[in-house]
Every structure is written in C-alpha cells, then in structure tokens.
C-alpha cells in the first residue's frame, strides 16, 4: 500500500511517500512561483528516490498554502490538521506543536488521539515568522543555515529594540557598525523571534510534550532560544521537522485508503 503527502508552502514544497505505513522517501525543494509546478517537481523527486512512478501511488493528500493547485492530489487537508497528524507519528506523547515556517508561525494543541483541540497562528506580521531570520541573515551576509551554529558561540546576546523586520534590519546594521560581535547579534535575533513565538504559543497553553516543526526548527540556536523563552524543554522531532506537514498528509492518505478498503 503506497500513499503520498504533498505540502506546498510559500517558500518550499515537501513530499513524503509511505509504503505500508513506513516512511520510504521524502523530498524538499524551494518553491517556484507556480504551486502546480512545485508540486510536480517535488513529488517526482521523491518518487525517483525509490524508483517508482506516480501511478503506483494509490492515494495522495495535498496540504499547505498551494494545496488547491496540486494536480495529483485525491484530497486536501488543512495544514493544521496535517501538522497535528504528523507530529504524533511514532511520538504519541506530542501535545503541543510549534511550527515556524517561512511565512507564518503556528501553535497547535493536540489530544491523545492526534485531534487538534486548539490552535493559534500569526501570518500578519513578518517579525514572528521565519522571514525575520531570512531578512536578517541576508542583511548580515550570512547563510541562513549557519545562523544556529554561529549563535552558539554567544554568551551575551544583544537585546533588539525594534520588532518590525524593516526597522530591525536597520538596527542590526548599526549594531554591526558599532562593532558588536556577530554571534551576539545573531543570538539576539533568535531571542527576539523566540520571545514572540513563545507569546503566541503560551496563549493556548503549553502541554508536554512540546515539539517544534518547520524549517526554523533545524536552527539549533533558535531551538535553544525557544526552550528558554517557553521555560520548557522541546522534544526532538523523529523526522526532518520540515516534512512534518507532508508526513501528516501522507498519514491522512493512508487512513483514507484503509477506510475505502475496509
């Protein structure tokens, strides 16, 4: 029984393939302007990894910002539901998911059956999303993926006075000019973002276990900063945190197929 999940986000597209309930392939690409093309491209890459073709996929669920434009999806599911579903796969103790994506941040509370009890998100202000770090990395001339490692060297993070991405961008340039160490600036950026996301997550109440998903979860500095801001530990993700939504979509596909067969 082969099923797939495809998560087309604003910045990246992700695909997951499950065979008899086991994860056999996954892939992540940078999203292009056309969600349809991104979906095709990412599923093809995932299929290629295991040497199968699209017609062997018995059921596929689409999710994410571009979910309505995935040509090969049999059904669609909301991102929130997919993140909830994905999080409890092989980790049934997960109750709170904090997802920081390129364009938003969400906090989702689950019951012990993986159902979403409550959720909250911010997609109005870029300062509470992954875009904040992206803009700052570009302003500092540093690769986004290096932020985490660099920040670990800091023991004196700066305190940012601006929240707005546009104003903060100017502020960090001044900080660089003042000669503030890079690791302290980056660590300060993590602290600032963590503070905002923690406020969002706390608004629905934190319940253990907490996991963090989305591309930003790969940033170790950010993970540490968020643990500090929440005052609680974050459990590591079983899968690549970026494919959690696609995994959830694939699990929905599996359920749909099992339902049909029975």
């Amino acid at each position: 029984m082969i099923v797939a999940g495809c998560d087309v986000g604003s910045m990246t597209a992700k695909a997951v393939i499950l065979k008899d309930g086991e994860l056999v392939s996954s892939h992540i690409i940078k999203a292009g302007p056309s969600p349809e093309k991104s979906a095709q491209e990412v599923i093809n890459a995932a299929l290629e990894k295991v040497g199968i073709t699209l017609d062997t996929i018995e059921y596929c669920v689409g999710t994410g910002y571009g979910r309505n434009e995935i040509p090969f999806a049999h059904a669609i599911e909301s991102e929130i539901a997919c993140h909830g579903k994905g999080a409890q796969w092989k980790m049934p103790s997960a109750r709170t998911i904090i997802d920081i994506g390129g364009q938003d941040a969400k906090a989702i509370k689950l019951d012990n059956n993986g159902n979403v009890i409550q959720y909250v998100y911010n997609d109005k202000c870029a300062s509470g999303s992954g875009r904040f770090l992206e803009v700052m990395a570009a302003a500092l001339g540093i690769n986004l993926h290096d932020l985490g490692e660099i920040s670990l060297k800091s023991n004196n993070p700066v305190t940012m006075s601006n929240q707005c991405v546009i104003f903060a961008e100017t502020e960090i340039i001044s900080l660089v000019n003042e000669g503030k160490p890079l690791q302290d600036i980056i660590s300060g950026l993590h602290k600032a973002l963590a503070h905002r996301v923690a406020a969002l997550a706390k608004s629905i109440g934190l319940e253990d276990d907490i996991i963090m998903t989305g591309g930003v979860a790969k940033n170790i500095g950010m993970l540490n900063a968020l643990e500090k801001a929440l005052g609680k530990p974050i459990k590591p993700c079983i899968v690549d945190p970026q494919i959690n939504g696609a995994l959830g979509a694939a699990l929905f596909a599996l359920e749909a197929l099992e339902g049909k067969k029975s």
Partner: peptide, 11 residues
C-alpha cells in the same frame, strides 16, 4: 487599482 491584502511591509 489593486488592493494589497497584507499590512506588513515585508509581505
């Protein structure tokens, strides 16, 4: 004239 959906300068 178009209507911008976002308030945030970045978006």
């Amino acid at each position: 004239p178009i209507n911008l959906a976002s308030t945030c300068t970045v978006w």
